[in-house]
Design a protein around this nucleic acid. Structure first.
Lengths: 227, 227
DNA sequence: AACACTACTGACAGATACTGTCAGTAGTTT
DNA sequence: AAACTACTGACAGTATCTGTCAGTAGTGTT
């Protein structure tokens, strides 16, 4: 029991403090070695606790990072649950897990009277037979977008011609039953969409792409809006 | 880390169940032996969590007890947003509005840095051309389910034969690109699914249907699970 | 620029907390 | 009365936790 309790107490301890707290002082308080504190902090961070460590200073926890109870009505809960279910059925395992953990947090914030609404839910999403499987890792593509890495892949277009593309990946768009990867195409010098299920040999390049005003996500979305 | 997480999860698990939960079922969920569950529960009680165990029944937690979960991370927000978008594209205007208002409530709880992340979101749902339009009011059907009103409608089956059905509506299931209305069919005396886009002359009857153990949503879901 | 302080990591070995199994008691529901 | 279920104790194996040590790197102070 020592461990589990200590992790909790560390959070509370940090929250009480207004100034940074060093690992050494935590070690003294909890009567363990600093090494153990470092491990504890790492574990807390891994499970999402917003603790910030700075060498020469100590640890600070961000106090706004707790979800307050949220009042939803029955329909809103149902809408969220349905959305989570759809994400689960239409993305990959890792993203589905993220959706699930988000939903768990929402459930945990529900005030007591709303909990029973969870059992009244009658709108679901089923895995569809029409879902077209893809080969690329959905999560990997998302990471490239987030990190602004250029990517290269082989693409089989609707005329069954293959080509090699280097893209600045901007967005993933669910266009049921397929996913589109939208990006700036270096070859064509314009925005292009690629069906995820027609992409092979996807490679993340080391090079990052710059944020150019007419080649970023905002510009892409503006163009779609225009059409 | 397994322990600390499990203790937390047990609390959440108990909280979202309205009936008592046995140690054996918890053991199955968390993939540990019942003995471990007994120890876990004891520890939780020792640290002040209001869990009540009754022999022959199981565990119940006081729903008023709740520990605030930590804030969403960027991926979780993205997953929720995507889900909300999908609901918007695949249901009707009124339900889409509910999804939006739910999302607004969530947004209102986000601290500043996470609101930044909202603008970084790169995963979207677009309205699909493959969506098959239906004639019935999605929201109306949901209301009938919620209120347990029997409903009557004309159905055009896949062999293009029409029939008049009286149904105890139980659930709406997104089976992209169509929606299925699942219910207990009085005519066939069994569960049946009906494609929303093949239903016409939908009428809500005044009569409510009773909650019979082998004809309710739980029974229907159990049957699906079984197949 | 040097120094003190601090976060952070890896390796390793010893300690200990956790876990499953088994056997048994007692309370609750059907 | 039978079937469940909570709960406890003992024990042995093991997974996890912990401290020590040695080292790197970032931050603030002098």
């Amino acid at each position: 029991m020592r461990r589990a309790e200590r992790l909790n107490d560390i959070i509370h301890h940090l929250r009480r403090m207004h100034q940074a707290v060093t690992a050494d002082s935590l070690a003294e308080v909890f009567e363990v070695s600093p090494r153990t504190i470092y491990r504890d902090i790492q574990n807390l961070i891994d499970s999402g606790v917003p603790i910030n460590g700075e060498a020469g200073v100590g640890y600070v926890i961000d106090k706004k990072y707790h979800l307050p109870p949220i009042m939803f009505d029955a329909d809103e809960i149902e809408a969220i649950a349905l959305g989570i279910g759809m994400v689960g059925n239409w993305t990959d395992e890792q993203f589905a897990a993220k959706a699930q953990s988000a939903f768990k947090k929402i459930q945990a914030t529900l005030p007591a009277p709303l909990i029973q609404e969870l059992h009244q839910i009658s709108t679901f999403s089923a895995p569809s037979h029409y879902k077209i499987p893809w080969e690329v890792s959905f999560t990997h593509v998302r990471e490239c977008i987030r990190r602004k890495n250029k990517v290269r892949f082989r693409y089989l277009d609707l005329q069954e011609r293959t080509s090699e593309r280097t893209i600045w990946p901007l967005s993933l768009i669910s266009f049921s039953p397929v996913w589109l990867l939208a990006g700036w195409c270096e070859l064509r010098q314009s925005f292009r969409n690629f069906r995820l299920d027609r992409i092979t040999e996807f490679v993340q390049l080391d090079e990052r792409y710059p944020n150019e005003k007419d080649k970023n996500l905002a510009a892409y979305l503006a163009q779609i809006d225009h059409d």
